[in-house]
């Protein structure tokens, strides 16, 4: 059994009140039926444009948001039905790293307070040992222990992200969801944090879901890749295979749009017209069809399921015209 199993997960938000014309409440289907599996020790990259629901999916998986429907099994335990004390204990095993280390750390807590809080909360250490454990954690993420009494404002962005990572590691979790962990950082700092994450993953055997809009970063760190579009997975499979020969027209367009740091690199960009439509009122049938250059009349009627690609058995693609897409 896979370490992480997500089955038909949905998260719908009620938009409060009535709209301009006095009509009833509307529903934003941020995550609308997502299923995937992830083996222990692997990294899943979750990519998509802003508003596609990738962050909501990450948060719903960890019960930071209550799912509307569906199940999430972490190491065989259904975390969607857990309540109260049981949920609290279980939270030890799954932790989150957020994008903005300026916002996710309490400005009035020192490094020691920030890192010791989860340890005390879960009664993992006696207060006499807390100092040693915090120093250990700082060492793991490459922060000098002389900084232990400092406040977040005294650190640079990269160092703050190290503190946030140490906080996530304090409870020795097995699963980490990292939501854009390097997007706020400069390239040279970004590479330090990416190296740190890959070291930690190896040393501690972590399983990770890595959410990012930066496809270059995701390609580098992830074993598996899930491409989301308007609350659904468009394509899912081993990262290398998906990057080599993307099947879904949306994946093709997304990958062709990545700027490559090589002036000789010329690729025909597949242009997508306009912006992603609103998840309040997604297009009928295949959600991508209004922007898809292969779409025909059926695409507007039939919603494609995420099926195994006959030519690449490890990959699943949600496109009913995959054969036609391949021929062109």
């Amino acid at each position: 059994m896979s370490f992480l199993v997500v089955e038909n997960l949905k998260k719908h938000f009620q938009v409060k009140g009535t709209d301009l014309f006095g009509r009833d409440k509307q529903v934003v289907k941020a995550v609308d039926g997502v299923s995937f599996r992830l083996e222990r020790g692997k990294v899943l990259g979750l990519v998509g444009e802003s508003g596609c629901g990738k962050s909501t999916l990450g948060r719903t998986m960890l019960r930071l948001l209550e799912p509307t429907e569906g199940r999430v099994l972490i190491d065989g335990t259904d975390v969607t039905t857990l309540k109260g004390e049981k949920l609290r204990t279980q939270r030890r095993t799954f932790q989150m790293i957020f994008q903005d280390p300026y916002a996710s750390l309490d400005p009035r807590m020192t490094v020691f307070d920030t890192l010791a809080e989860p340890l005390f909360e879960h009664k993992l250490v006696e207060s006499s040992q807390a100092l040693n454990r915090v120093k250990e954690l700082m060492d793991v993420v490459g922060l000098a222990s002389r900084h232990i009494r400092k406040y977040p404002h005294e650190f640079s962005g990269g160092q703050r992200q190290r503190i946030a990572i140490a906080r996530a590691l304090a409870l020795e979790p097995e699963l980490i969801v990292a939501d854009e962990p390097v997007s706020a950082l400069d390239v040279s700092i970004q590479s330090q944090i990416l190296n740190l994450l890959s070291d930690l993953r190896e040393q501690l055997g972590l399983t990770m879901v890595f959410i990012s809009h930066d496809l270059g970063v995701v390609k580098h760190v992830s074993d598996d890749l899930a491409v989301m579009y308007l609350g659904k997975i468009a394509e899912y499979g081993p990262t290398q295979e998906v990057f080599q020969a993307p099947g879904h027209p949306y994946t093709q367009a997304l990958l062709s749009a990545i700027p490559v740091p090589d002036p000789d690199y010329k690729v025909e960009q597949i242009e997508l017209d306009g912006d992603p439509p609103s998840p309040i009122n997604p297009p009928s049938g295949c959600r991508f069809h209004p922007r898809c250059r292969y779409a025909n009349a059926d695409c507007a009627k039939l919603e494609p399921s995420l099926d195994i690609d006959s030519q690449r058995p490890a990959v699943r693609v949600a496109c009913s015209r995959l054969d036609a897409v391949r021929q062109k």
Partner: peptide
Amino acid sequence: LLDSIPSTHAHGERLFN
């Protein structure tokens, strides 16, 4: 700077710091 960019590296290869 060029060596720090992930996309110029093979998958999983260590990035230059």
